[in-house]
Write a protein that binds this DNA or RNA. Sequence first.
DNA 1: CTGAAAGCGCTTACAG
DNA 2: CTGAAAGCGCTTACAG
Lengths: 343, 343
Amino acid sequence: MTIKGKATSLDIAHLAGVSQPTVSRALRGSPSVNPETRRRILAIARELNYKVDKNASNLRCQQSGTLALLFFEDPTPDDSLINPFFHSMLGSITRACALRGYDLLVSFQQLSNNWHADFEDSHKADGLILLGYGDYLESESKLQRLVEQGTHFVRWGAALPGEPGVSIGCDNFQGGHDITAHLLAQGRRRIAFLGHASDHYPEFFERYRGYAQALREAGLEPDPALQVDAITTEQSGHVAAAALLDAGAGFDALFAASDLIALGALNSLREHGLRVPEDVAVAGFDDIAMASFVQPGLSTVQQDTKQAGEVLVDSLIRLIQGEPVEPRTLPVRLVLRGSSAAG
Amino acid sequence: MTIKGKATSLDIAHLAGVSQPTVSRALRGSPSVNPETRRRILAIARELNYKVDKNASNLRCQQSGTLALLFFEDPTPDDSLINPFFHSMLGSITRACALRGYDLLVSFQQLSNNWHADFEDSHKADGLILLGYGDYLESESKLQRLVEQGTHFVRWGAALPGEPGVSIGCDNFQGGHDITAHLLAQGRRRIAFLGHASDHYPEFFERYRGYAQALREAGLEPDPALQVDAITTEQSGHVAAAALLDAGAGFDALFAASDLIALGALNSLREHGLRVPEDVAVAGFDDIAMASFVQPGLSTVQQDTKQAGEVLVDSLIRLIQGEPVEPRTLPVRLVLRGSSAAG
DNA sequence: CTGAAAGCGCTTACAG
DNA sequence: CTGAAAGCGCTTACAG
């Protein structure tokens, strides 16, 4: 049985002695096809290794069965510095898409790019998942445009009031609060915060707010001298911790807005001869794989990436199907290891 | 200017007072379009935020402008354990695709899945990139089927004679040889190898062969008691190193077939009270980000993931275009850090 | 339960 | 330089 090129539904129709639409119906499981006819058609399709041409069916149905994951990179274009947390999200999103029968296009984007809507306008994807850190205020206007154009999208980020579009994020405030409360419970009093704490980085800002709240609940006022800006890289964490030490602002604990920052800080503390947790307790945020590997293990706030991927994908699919979707905040949980033991 | 739904080339044609094919030509940069007409068409297209419908153009052209990356997972389905090396490859492949105008579909696959050819048969992708560790002999027959079906694909792996299809890999033999020679130059004599050394894991096997060759060049015979099987996870490395210690096979250095194995071994050595590098020098393979982060830094063999991604993508595109493509072996380089300093 | 017909939005000979 | 026509491979009313 040879067919020039790939088999089409018409080839199968000829072979089965039916019309091409009947083949289409049989393949899609239409109940109005004679069981015997369907069996014959399916057998032939299998033998010919036939696959429905997605370009044709998508064109006809005006959809693509594909989601696009747009990953926004930090300024640094260095592959190796991508936050492992996002890799975990990528894995989870990929799996969630596969389970729901969607394909996933992956694209790395610069924040500055003209990325809005390209994928959906060209029918390459039915909707977008936006992922990645960066200056939020820089991207806000673009998100606004996506909304105006009616593009279907969800983004991973702080689910705050007034956000354009649908945001899914973890409970950054609660995580920041709980880990700080834990450090306080270990007897720490001078707790530094490493990470940006402004509208430009809403997720970090929420973590900072939780931190400040926990301090106040313990009767302490956040000390501005103990907050140092940092983005999510080891390097930035290293620099921030060194700056804190150089400034001579005494501290007995350190809450980093991400694990990568915490890991950089750990190395900086070690270089300065400080012991963890004896001299300084350290905690991070994310629970990346490395957190459980370093010595001592890094206490941190775990984001459930599996659930996050599922919620992102499910929300986007509902959006595409025209159903109402609310922003969601997912729970976090503390993972306590040696780095925050009592001093 | 309102058009119900998304604008099509026909909408633009009406607005520009030309036929629809002329719009198509103008948009694709055909030289036979009047410059003034083209300008008018482009202006309207921009104003309407028009994007060519990929489903339609792909259907017409019988291609997709998309590559599919099939990522094969190790038996373990745990997201967090994915080898960071592959994440780096993913980043590099994504970028290489973007630069060449191809979209990238990403799919995680179980080795056992019925993955052969699905993507290309359904016209979702013009070709496949296969990536991931696992038992090679299990997948060989499937690769053979891909070849028989004329599917376009390249895979990352050992570029050995007799492989089905086109394999691109790094110089595993040379890397294994050079890092072992380095350990020997540091005065080490009893060098253990952690990792599978059989046809089931051709890349590891090549690294082992390089290791054995370097030993022989130094007048040493590989000691079977110093080789312990391991797959690419920290856990496996931890277990393998512990087994080696428990067996009492004395060794003063350890070459792990991957960085993850080496990192697991480092923790195991530490738990046994052994100092690195004083008591045992340690080296890995891959140069993942964590290698430069741990203390002491992990000496390793760097695979150039940027080049690897580019070569994979370029090779696949050439394959799709019907050009001849040879398997390739890419150079590696040593990255020496504290873990292999003289004892 | 099945077939003839229309049409999704493009691209590309073909004719002028 | 431009238009009328055909066709890529499907899916889905519509009619029977």
